[in-house]
Amino acid sequence: MGYHKIDKTDRKILNILQKSAKITNAQLSKEIGLSPAPTLERVKKLEQTGIIKSYHAQLDPAKIGLGVSTFVLVTLAGHNKENIDKFLDNINQIEEVIECHHITGSGDFILKVIAKDIASYQQVMLEKVSDISVVDNLSSMVVLSTLKDSKALPIPE
Rank of each mutant, 00 (worst) to 15 (best):
54 S>Q: 11
54 S>K: 11
54 S>C: 12
54 S>D: 08
56 H>L: 14
56 H>I: 12
57 A>V: 13
57 A>C: 14
57 A>S: 15
57 A>D: 08
57 A>L: 15
57 A>P: 04
58 Q>G: 07
58 Q>P: 07
60 D>N: 15
60 D>F: 13
60 D>A: 15
60 D>W: 14
61 P>V: 07
61 P>E: 13
62 A>I: 14
63 K>E: 11
64 I>H: 08
64 I>R: 09
64 I>M: 15
65 G>F: 12
65 G>D: 13
65 G>Q: 07
66 L>G: 02
66 L>Q: 13
67 G>C: 04
67 G>E: 04
68 V>K: 03
70 T>P: 01
70 T>G: 10
70 T>E: 10
70 T>F: 02
71 F>D: 03
71 F>W: 09
72 V>Q: 00
72 V>W: 00
72 V>A: 01
73 L>T: 05
74 V>T: 02
75 T>C: 12
76 L>D: 01
76 L>R: 02
76 L>G: 02
77 A>W: 02
78 G>V: 07
79 H>T: 06
79 H>G: 12
80 N>E: 04
81 K>W: 07
81 K>E: 11
84 I>H: 03
84 I>T: 10
84 I>D: 05
84 I>Q: 06
85 D>K: 10
85 D>W: 04
85 D>F: 11
85 D>I: 06
85 D>N: 14
87 F>Y: 14
87 F>V: 04
87 F>M: 08
87 F>I: 04
88 L>G: 01
88 L>V: 13
89 D>V: 06
89 D>K: 11
90 N>F: 05
90 N>R: 06
91 I>Y: 02
92 N>Y: 08
93 Q>L: 14
94 I>W: 01
95 E>H: 11
95 E>Q: 06
95 E>K: 09
95 E>C: 04
96 E>G: 01
96 E>A: 02
96 E>Y: 01
97 V>F: 00
98 I>W: 03
98 I>E: 03
98 I>L: 03
98 I>V: 10
99 E>F: 05
101 H>P: 02
101 H>F: 12
103 I>T: 11
104 T>K: 12
104 T>Q: 08
105 G>K: 08
105 G>I: 13
105 G>S: 12
107 G>K: 05
107 G>T: 09
108 D>Q: 11
108 D>F: 03
108 D>Y: 05
109 F>K: 05
109 F>L: 13
110 I>P: 01
111 L>V: 04
112 K>M: 09
112 K>R: 15
113 V>Q: 01
114 I>A: 06
115 A>T: 00
115 A>K: 00
115 A>H: 00
116 K>P: 01
117 D>E: 15
118 I>A: 15
118 I>T: 13
119 A>W: 09
120 S>R: 04
120 S>T: 15
120 S>L: 06
120 S>A: 11
121 Y>Q: 04
122 Q>W: 04
122 Q>A: 09
122 Q>S: 13
123 Q>E: 14
125 M>H: 05
125 M>C: 06
125 M>A: 08
126 L>N: 14
126 L>H: 12
127 E>D: 08
127 E>V: 02
127 E>W: 02
128 K>Q: 10
128 K>E: 03
129 V>N: 00
130 S>T: 11
